[in-house]
Amino acid sequence: MAQTLKEFIANHKLHNHLLSDMQTHGFVTAMAAAPHLIDPSEWLAFMWGGEETSPFESHELLEEYANIIVAIWNEQREALLSNQWQWPEACALDDEEIVNAETRLFCEGLLQGWTLARDDWETLMPEQSEDNALLGGVILSITLMFDPESALSAMEQQGAAELAQFEEVFNAMPTMLCGLTMRAAQRVEESM
């Protein structure tokens, strides 16, 4: 049986050298949702902070890690395009913290990945387009999940602070992210 990313990181004591399991899943999900396929060789180094030298002791370990990442990408891409994507099991709402640490880490990785594909998104879904509103809604929702306290504070200033809204956004995220990915794939196909 193949190792999970979490097991790989723990077994090789790479906690301080790689994005965490949840951050990585978020980042790879953003790459899987991107409108144009970006070769993993162009973004894999982001998993260890963009340094030229990888933290792996051997080429075999790097290859094993890359295979795990590509498997996650394949799984996420298929789930997004088939409208089957769901939050990772560890991600959840939290009564005290609004969302749990895993959700924050996943959203942090997702936002980092979005920045890498930002130009593609902005070209495909330019400002003032209906598609741009969908893109903006997804990014805003991810940002809300990443930093709910700031969002709650801003909402309170507008007189609209309700924790129930976070639950609605959290529950709607799979549909929104799948819809955005499928719409982007459709737009790319139409432009060919």
Rank of each mutant, 00 (worst) to 15 (best):
N16F: 11
N16Y: 13
N16C: 10
H17W: 13
L18T: 11
L19V: 00
L19K: 05
L19S: 04
S20H: 10
S20Y: 07
Q23P: 08
H25N: 13
G26A: 06
V28F: 01
V28L: 09
M31E: 07
M31T: 03
M31Q: 11
A32G: 12
P35C: 07
P35T: 03
H36Y: 15
H36M: 15
L37S: 12
I38D: 08
D39L: 03
D39Y: 02
D39N: 12
D39G: 02
D39F: 05
P40E: 09
S41L: 10
E42Y: 14
E42N: 13
W43K: 08
L44K: 06
L44F: 09
L44S: 09
A45P: 14
A45N: 14
A45D: 15
F46W: 11
M47F: 07
M47C: 12
W48V: 04
G49T: 03
G50E: 13
G50Y: 07
T53L: 12
T53D: 15
T53Q: 13
S54Q: 12
S54E: 15
F56H: 08
E57H: 00
E57Q: 07
S58V: 02
H59S: 13
E60H: 10
E60S: 12
L61A: 07
L61G: 03
L61D: 11
L61T: 09
E63A: 15
E64H: 13
E64M: 10
A66M: 12
N67Y: 12
N67L: 14
I68D: 10
I68N: 07
I68K: 07
I69Q: 07
I69W: 06
A71E: 15
A71H: 10
I72E: 02
R77S: 08
R77T: 05
R77C: 01
A79Q: 09
A79H: 08
L80E: 01
L80H: 00
L80P: 00
